[in-house]
């Protein structure tokens, strides 16, 4: 059993800790750093509730060892808005893109990455893009509307 000193930049802030090799990134984020916006919804890498941006790319943090994230940049839902609400968060608020909210942090991070890559996605692109994130409440209809609204807001921001 080995333990390792790791340094991970989370939401712009660097954190250095000694961790056991088997510690999962999601537990590092929730338990070591107390950032509980990243959720755990399954044991099978299926639900996407634990999605964070790992070097800008959506990743299921329940299936990454914290040691393997040494040197990485991670964004969690706490780091999504910069002071205020991110357009994706505003989209989810305005279009009721959530009910219980359990899937929402992961859903929003996946949506942000999708919009960064494809600012004007079709409904099919959105449904395809979020297909690794499960929602048990909304039936996805309002999530799709929320992402469409976020896309509009992001365009307004970049025009203005």
């Amino acid at each position: 059993m080995s333990s390792h000193q790791i340094s991970v930049t989370i939401n712009g802030e660097q954190h250095t800790r000694e961790v056991e090799a088997r510690l999962l990134l999601v537990h590092f984020i929730r338990e070591e750093l107390g950032l509980t916006g990243t959720h755990i919804g399954c044991d099978t890498t299926s639900c996407g509730a634990c999605t964070v941006l790992l070097n800008g790319v959506p990743a299921k943090s329940c299936t990454v060892f914290a040691v393997a994230a040494d040197g990485a940049e991670v964004t969690t839902v706490e780091g999504l808005g910069n002071g205020g609400l991110h357009p994706v968060q505003r989209g989810f608020t305005e279009k009721h893109g959530l009910q219980c909210g359990f899937c929402t942090p992961g859903m929003m991070l996946t949506s942000k990455a999708l919009l960064d890559e494809n600012p004007d996605p079709s409904e099919a692109d959105i449904r395809w893009g979020i297909s690794g994130n499960l929602c048990r409440c909304t039936g996805y209809v309002n999530i799709v509307k929320a992402v469409q609204r976020a896309s509009e807001l992001m365009k307004e921001n970049s025009d203005g």
Partner: peptide, 9 residues
């Protein structure tokens, strides 16, 4: 193969 988030890793 799997889903878009899994395919990132």
């Amino acid at each position: 193969i799997a889903d878009p988030v899994v395919r990132n890793l």
